[in-house]
Nucleic acid binder design. Structure first.
Lengths: 108, 108
DNA sequence: TAGTAGTATTCGGTAGTACAAGGTACCAAG
DNA sequence: CTTGGTACCTTGTACTACCGAATACTACTA
């Protein structure tokens, strides 16, 4: 699937939030997970900018831990604000999905 | 539903394409139709920029017609390239939808 | 021991998109 | 002749995903 970038705007951040929410993890692993899930073209740089934004907006808590497999990893976990944001994200997603699918079916 | 703008990026153009595809129509009416469909905050300015973009990219054909209800209306119709683009849009949408829904269900 | 590959983060710049805000034009009714 | 509804267009801004490049650490291997 070619060039989904424009369509991913706004949703990628929610996806990262969801991944962090299900398990405390770090940037590199999140990128791999997204690729695995079918977001094949998502690269590290993109994920890190999202991560930094999440941190700046106070939605996650970051902890640095040594790795044994290269440089230290920065683990991220959701805080209360992050969990709330995640819930909002899914609500928006369901809303948009229902509208667009309705439109697709020639919704009157 | 508040502020869906970021999440609509990339999808709004497809929605407009779909609306035009189902019926030759004009900017103002498209905006009303979107509002009706639940995209409540979409405003004229947004739709016109999309329409100009579609025209510039050669996906639609525009025809001006007098209206009797104010200034002349600019009707838009899809051409072959537009129909193709619309098909691509739906393919992308289905793809992204399946990926995100899988993620939501804790897809492994 | 030098080189390469894999892991991991950061930063600066770019392009695309929706939107806000403003303006223009035309008609009918009060 | 002013108001309100219809219809269109333009400019500027904020946000986001992406890319390229740099940095750093470890392990393997030629």
């Amino acid at each position: 699937m070619d060039d989904l970038t424009e369509m991913l705007k706004g949703t990628l951040e929610g996806c990262v939030l969801e991944i962090i929410g299900s398990e405390e993890t770090y940037g590199y692993a999140i990128t791999r997970r997204l690729n695995e899930l079918g977001f094949a073209d998502v690269v590290e740089g993109t994920v890190y900018t999202i991560l930094l934004r999440l941190e700046k907006n106070g939605l996650v808590q970051a902890t640095k831990r040594p790795s044994g497999q290269g440089p230290p990893r920065k683990f991220y976990a959701l805080n209360d604000a992050g969990r709330e944001e995640l819930a909002t994200f899914w609500a928006k997603w369901e809303y948009i999905k229902s509208r667009i699918d309705k439109l697709k079916e020639g919704g009157r």
